[in-house]
Amino acid sequence: MTALIRNQWYVAAYSEEVGEPLLGRTILGEPLVLYRTQDGTAVALADRCVHRRYPLSLSGRDGDRIVCGYHGFTYEPSGACVYVPAQTRVPRTARVPSYQVVEQDSLVWVWIGDAGRADASRIPRAPWLNAPGYTTVRGMEPLAARYGLLVDNLLDLSHETYLHGGYIGTPEVAETPITTEVDEDAGIVYVRRRMTDVECPPFYANSTGIEGHIDRWQDIEYHPPGLYLLHSRIAPTGVEIGPDGDDSGAFHAEIVYAITPETENTTLDFWMVARDFAVDDAQVSEYLAKSNHTVVMQDVVALNALEKVIATEPEGYQELSINIDTGGLAARRMLKNLLGS
């Protein structure tokens, strides 16, 4: 499943990455240059000068314009070329494609596909990422693997026990049954794993200060193709949500992944951890950022190895799926449907 799904919104960057410097990034095989105009608007243009294809991301700026670093073709944020060297007439075809951009929840989304089909109201939300009362650590790792492998990975968290032991994995994760729901109308896959009276992994013990056993919820909400949310609730065993909905006795981490195909066989793995505890504690932020980066890199190594296996295997290899794959299979089917829509 390497086919790329067009006519979708994808995260191209974090808001904090888009600024005065020109940022080059490839999304679904399309090279983009991203930057921010002087009024603060994020812009995405095709990263190829119309003249001799020089990457605009390797060029310079003149105010809100990009001046090609090769021969000086100069582009407005709209993509229109307004200057070519040594002649007064700018050819009418001198324009680079521009991409629709929506910036929300600290993410820069771009629409890849037919411009007339873009509907910003369909972009899934992740409000914790810049909401008051939360602190977020984040990063991005390029994967030398197809995005479907990251979807498989994230929809089945039983792998935490084996791949991420000593960080977020404990024996109980792989041993606890899951409930899977698919909302066809909303286009969302839910996978819920609720663990009671279980070991607290170092990732949460060291960040929350909890000693002893915990109740641990892993509630996945996957919005195919590009956004994955893991609502993680950690509480000392026995601490329940109050009858009025008060859950202040628990710790909440909102784990967010933006899954952005770069090419058919490479992926941009944007990872974020937002938390509602120790929000002003820089040491906790540093610890969670370092630990989660380690976890992500464990996945990167594994998925890069898997990509090599899949790329070289004969056609017709039959996988075996078991109960832990119920959500992953649902996600694959939704992706397949999106591909055909």
């Binding site: 899977t180 698919v182 066809e184 109308d185 799926s321 109960n323 794959d325 119920t326 299979l329």
Partner: peptide
């Protein structure tokens, strides 16, 4: 809502599925 639900029955290897129409089914694999 058009929601499909599959519960992995605790203490077993069985899956219990419920269609949005209310039909129910048990199975051994997803």
């Amino acid at each position: 809502a058009t929601v499909y639900r599959i519960v992995w029955l605790p203490g077993s290897d069985r899956l219990h599925g419920t269609c949005h129409c209310g039909a129910e089914h048990d199975a051994d694999d997803p």
